[in-house]
Write a protein that binds this DNA or RNA. Structure first.
Lengths: 170, 170
DNA sequence: CAGAGCATGTAAGAAGTTACATGATTGT
DNA sequence: ACAATCATGTAACTTCTTACATGCTCTG
């Protein structure tokens, strides 16, 4: 039976890697900041719910990938996390994990396309049209220039894909 | 407090929609067949683990979206599921759900790209190279022509995206 | 001074994961 | 006869979700 303890070098999940990434980018962050960063994503997977993020940060600290200090300067509590050296290493390893990075992930549009034959043509066309509109309308996330570039690049490819599928549909 | 009971018209999850989709496509299927169909996906999300699929099918039957009959012709048990009329409706509603269909989902490559600045250029380039290779090497799934077309179309767009990112990286 | 947003967290429940457990059937 | 695969399912555990709970701080 596998037991996750502090020293085990288990590969990080996407959420764990993402949290380390945010902290690495900004130097130091509170759980709240990580939560907000996640919430900016156009993906429901990065919902940034408190019930996911706070326990996550605690877990990462228990595994010594994060270290927290009290950064409160007023009466309001504030707990700031930084990467430990093991955390830096774990993040770098997660980033370069080709197997995980190559996974096709989870894509609601792609899933529906696999069953598109079971829709009549007008319905299929209308689905693609509406997804195209919503994709165009998606807000560009964050005030992080680099992330915005990636997002725009993703959006462009997405729209190209949808256009191609529409053409294929006739 | 929300309680999921048999009659509640809660939107289906991706896994639930996918299971209904498989059954709709093939007419009637066992949990095992659905499980195998899921396993053929290049995505870890569709892992098709028994612990996910068997309870899932049971849930869908409890909600009257599926009906099962004993299809065993030998000593080996065999339980075959079909869509009920409510199941057909639920599947169609799930297929046309534009909000869910437009969600950006979960994409390990995209996530890593958001943090790519924290890798040095050779590491970034090597990551993209290796993901490209793995994407090219991905098996075309299933003996379902339509699904294969969608998969190939996805792969093509994916490779185009990677090529563009590589160029952008210099 | 009220309301939005910052900041912490927990409790109950849903739905996955891995691993186990059992046995029938088919192909070599 | 043996292994692979078909076929069913469960048990323990992990980690998410929604909803609740609390209180501080800033802005209009």
């Amino acid at each position: 039976m596998h037991v996750k303890n502090e020293s085990s070098p288990y590969p990080l999940t996407e959420l764990e890697g993402g949290a380390l990434g945010v902290i690495q980018r900004v130097g130091a962050a509170t759980a709240y900041q990580v939560k907000e960063w996640f919430s900016c994503s156009p993906s429901g997977y990065w919902s940034g719910s408190a019930g996911a993020v706070y326990p996550l940060m605690q877990r990462l600290e228990d595994r010594s990938l994060l270290a927290s200090r009290n950064a409160s300067e007023t009466k309001r509590p504030k707990r700031e996390f930084r990467l430990t050296p093991s955390g830096e290493l774990a993040f770098s390893t997660w980033m370069r994990d080709v197997n995980q990075a190559s996974d096709a992930g989870y894509d609601p549009l792609r899933t529906r396309l696999a069953f598109l034959v079971s829709l009549d043509k007008p319905a299929a066309r209308s689905l693609l049209d509406e997804v195209e509109l919503k994709t165009r309308a998606m807000a560009s996330p964050l005030d992080d220039d680099y992330v915005r570039i990636i997002h725009e690049s993703w959006r462009t490819m997405r729209l190209a894909w949808i256009a191609e599928l529409k053409q294929h549909l006739g």
